[in-house]
Design a binder for these strands. Structure first.
Lengths: 196, 196
DNA sequence: TGCCGAGTTGGAATATGATTACAGTATCAG
DNA sequence: CTGATACTGTAATCATATTCCAACTCGGCA
């Protein structure tokens, strides 16, 4: 993959809707070319193939998401408070870019075949949460749990709830009411379902 | 799709590993034919195409999963107790058939394009949980929460934790220690992360 | 001004794999 | 035995990704 100009990158983002709308295999290069205004020969000049275009779009979004999540995780507050901020930031990123978010979750099961993307997902979703779980056990604001399973549980809870609302929306941005959904998700993640 | 003999169905299940291993588009009909021992002409005689074969495998597994989940949900116990049984049953179904489970989650983002499958997922995963959430609010064993979001949270927590372990395994069955994982997931779903 | 190289583009050529068509074979109920 | 239905091998057909290549643009620069 050549280095992509910001101009080209901006056009390519329009292609996310094509991938999200039709699914990876049904999204033809020609449709991608039409949607972005970039001729297919130019696409092949800049990328090794369709898969690399997909990977670029995912990486682009994940990198931006990582940045806002990294900001959310900072600060002197307890781990529990910062975990809430992280979850809100992740849901906001999904609501802001429903197409890419849908693309990403469509690739979930085969993400181990896109190692760079798997790393970026770790960076944006798993590692921040794992870090807070450790810190929360230390500062007493979070219960002590299996990091591995708790990270997976939170990742699943956040992304599939986001996906549910994204699919229900019709590509509007934001795709859903981030505050309301985040409040519900955070409530469940922090307090669980048990009556008390 | 013609009616599929149990004999053919059994052979086809061998094909799940091909879909799971390579991903839908990289899985060629020829590879599917080799893996199952069913000639490609026979596949096309019985199914309208590759997508329908995928759909059959998913439906097959989801139907079986629905049955065990429906059994788990029965009984006089509180909704909380039965919710735990349901989650265990769902994780057990995933561990028992890692290939199909991986196939299913690979199709998550495009599942709205396979309406029958989306229905079957509702049947096996969402509806039982939604039912218990309502009953739990009545019998007092579960907190009152948004059914829509809580259902999505639990679905995400269960399936992505399962997927995490399935991907980590190498196709062995069971793919992971169901009891241990279920205990962690149920603990988080019921009690959350908050220290108490 | 005129050249150079990188980026861009249109269009033809190639390759792969899904799907179809069809004819011949097997199986099984009556 | 016979007809119907299911199965299978082979040879097209077709769509689409990918490659190839020649022409074109354009900014820097001697």
């Amino acid at each position: 993959m050549r280095s992509i100009s910001t101009d080209l990158a901006a056009k390519l983002r329009l292609g996310a809707a094509v991938f999200a709308g039709r699914g990876y295999d049904a999204a033809t290069i020609e449709a991608l070319s039409d949607a972005t205004g970039v001729p297919s020969s130019t696409l092949y000049y800049n990328f090794a193939g369709k898969q690399e275009i997909l990977a670029f779009l995912l990486q682009d979004w994940l990198d931006r998401t990582s940045v806002v999540v990294a900001t959310a995780i900072e600060g002197p507050a307890t781990a529990a408070v910062r975990l809430e901020a992280v979850i809100r930031a992740q849901l906001a990123a999904m609501a802001d870019d429903p197409s890419t978010c849908q693309m990403l979750l469509a690739e979930l099961g085969r993400i181990d075949r896109l190692p760079h993307i798997a790393d970026a997902v770790q960076q944006a979703f798993h590692r921040p949460v794992a870090k807070l779980l450790v810190e929360g056990a230390v500062d007493g604001s979070l219960a002590e749990v299996s990091i591995e399973n708790a990270t997976a549980v939170i990742y699943g809870a956040v992304t599939l709830t986001g996906l549910h609302h994204v699919v229900a929306s019709d590509g509007h941005t934001p795709a859903f009411d981030v505050d309301a959904v985040a409040t519900d998700v955070v409530g469940l993640v922090m307090n669980g379902l048990g009556s008390r």
